[in-house]
Design a protein around this nucleic acid. Structure first.
Lengths: 152, 152
DNA sequence: CTTCATGTAACTTCATATGTTACATGATAG
DNA sequence: CTATCATGTAACATATGAAGTTACATGAAG
């Protein structure tokens, strides 16, 4: 099944925005993501409605962060995308009359439910601020690495 | 995203087969599943290759169980289907050069990996025999329920 | 040798993420 | 005021993969 990469994509955008002051146009962000400006507007629409980002039209317009990064988790962002389905597999039929199907659904539903719950919990543990901090560390360590590689 | 229901479907077939002696033709199984015989053959192909089921051609032919149901787990069946992807979401790019993408992938990859591991572990805990036993209980309790409903 | 059943390729259908074009809306610069 | 810039959004195109279907080859039983 084709994998949904909107969460990955929108986080990429947000992290770029957190690295420097805005605003950023959809076109700028689209180039950084190697995609189309309309795709950016589409995945950002839900975040705008929830107040996580702000969009301004006209000259000097574009997208700006409008939330406390330490208060928003990856789960919040996932929800802002409309909570698309997490699992690629599911039961053939929900609420089946057939007892066989009910037995199968019960077993699979348990496993699927547990996995979904864990994934949502994990996403809820990570804030955008934590992601941004991790990114800064990566940038920092790469700079050190580059220096040592070129001058040591 | 369209959900893959092959695991659900093939378990349904196996449980039906476990309820009474075979063999079962693809057409019979397809009717019980309200689908096409070719779909049955397709999802059973992997199980046949791994020896979980046996197929016989010609008059009196069809599918028969060829494994110890207490030794085969839902995870084994999942693997027999070719281990299709479990999650509907994924990273935009694997092995990205961009540090931002790496930071995003690290966070999401952790959450995704944990959820996948849990799901596989859960599937590995359930054997076909356990499923079949659960089904018998459901059949039994429904009979009792029906009797009480009609004659009490 | 006819019938039945599997094995498999090829095609159609359907859902959905993604990409693209087109145009309306609104804000700013001059 | 008007030209330009940027978002908002509808509409359409493309790509992928599961599921359904048709067609036919293969092989076993009567």
């Amino acid at each position: 099944m084709k994998r949904d990469s909107r969460l990955s994509g929108v986080l990429h955008v947000l992290l770029h925005m957190a690295q420097q002051p805005g605003p950023f146009t959809s076109e700028t962000l689209a180039k950084a993501m190697d995609t189309n400006p309309v795709v950016i507007r589409r995945i950002m629409a839900g975040l705008r409605e929830l107040g996580y980002v702000h969009a301004e039209k006209g000259h000097g317009g574009g997208w700006t962060l409008a939330c406390d990064l330490s208060k928003v988790t990856l789960r919040d962002i996932y929800a802002a995308l409309g909570s698309p389905s997490l699992l690629a597999m599911g039961n053939r039929t929900e609420a089946p009359g057939c007892l066989v199907e009910q037995a199968v659904n019960a077993a699979l539903g348990q496993a699927f439910g547990d996995a979904e719950a864990l994934l949502l919990a994990r996403l809820g543990e990570v804030t955008l601020a934590m992601l941004s901090e991790d990114l800064r560390k990566r940038i920092g360590s790469r700079k050190i690495h580059d220096i040592s590689a070129h001058r040591a």
